[in-house]
Design a protein around this nucleic acid. Structure first.
Lengths: 156, 156
DNA sequence: CTCATTGCAAATAATTTGCATGTAA
DNA sequence: TTACATGCAAATTATTTGCAATGAG
């Protein structure tokens, strides 16, 4: 939607991944390639189960442990970001270093949307400074009801 | 540390609990009383396992399912707050409605400290408003290294 | 050829639940 | 007495791991 270089971005991530694999002596296999490509095409906040379904539609023989292992690998090398919201499942999104964001989670319909607020990030750094704390990452999630669910509730 | 009415606060929570139990027809048992009292004396962010150990030192016959069930009950009626940080265990703290806070989690030593920043809360409400989203609760956690761990790292 | 990788099933780990027995009210 | 509560063990859920077979380099 507001992607400046859609292909350049994925190309960069592919580079990251192969550099990491080369450094670690890891191998490029058919299932890793399928999983990674499908992941790149997936909407944000996909679960392992959802991704497995998509991957199996391309190759039914892929085991679910392989999807877990591959996404862990992608997370390790910075190609994927792991997210855990309140519902017990881990979700993944394609990394985008210069465009990190936080989340609004609708407790009615489960829709997850994103927001960015530089002023919050700045204040958060300020808080950390007061505590002598060096922030590596953060999680900021707002749980509540989205506009659509509020409208639906009002309508009845 | 900055508690205005330390006893009044617990008294209020005890009131909440017994009102809830009365409304639901629940019973006051020996194990519930022990668990609740020990919980009130515990430091913030205690885990079920930690609390179970303390409870068993008072009464070795308490089962761990009872601790789970009792803390779930406390969370339902607003006496306890459930927190899940990245490590897979659920932690609990005694509720304090007029003093909610967020967390700094040290990824080195695991220490969890707290912060309050009204300006962040305000901005967060502003973000929600822009999205037509009604916030019910939120989670704001900073992961990184605490002052002590940074000092320890520098020292070597 | 060698060693990483895979699929499967079994193992974990935290939490939940079924059920016979115990016990508040 | 009448359900609610408890303790235990078994069930669940998401994820991880051991291992023999497979396949990349």
């Amino acid at each position: 939607m507001e992607q400046a270089h859609p292909d350049g971005h994925l190309a960069h991530l592919r580079g990251l991944l192969s550099a990491y694999m080369a450094k670690k002596g890891l191998r490029s296999t058919e299932q890793r390639r399928v999983i990674v490509e499908r992941f790149f095409e997936s909407p944000a906040h996909i679960t392992i189960e959802e991704l497995l379904a998509v991957v199996r539609s391309a190759d039914p023989r892929v085991g679910y442990a392989t999807v877990y292992r591959t996404l862990k690998l992608l997370a390790e090398c910075g190609v994927a970001v792991e997210r855990r919201f309140g519902d017990g499942v881990t979700r993944y999104e394609v990394a985008n270093d210069d465009h990190h964001h936080d989340h609004l989670i609708c407790v009615e319909c489960g829709t997850i949307s994103e927001f960015e607020e530089p002023a919050i990030e700045a204040l958060q750094e300020e808080v950390a400074r007061r505590h002598g704390f060096a922030v590596k990452s953060h999680k900021h999630e707002l749980y509540g009801t989205c506009a659509a669910c509020q409208a639906r509730a009002k309508r009845r």
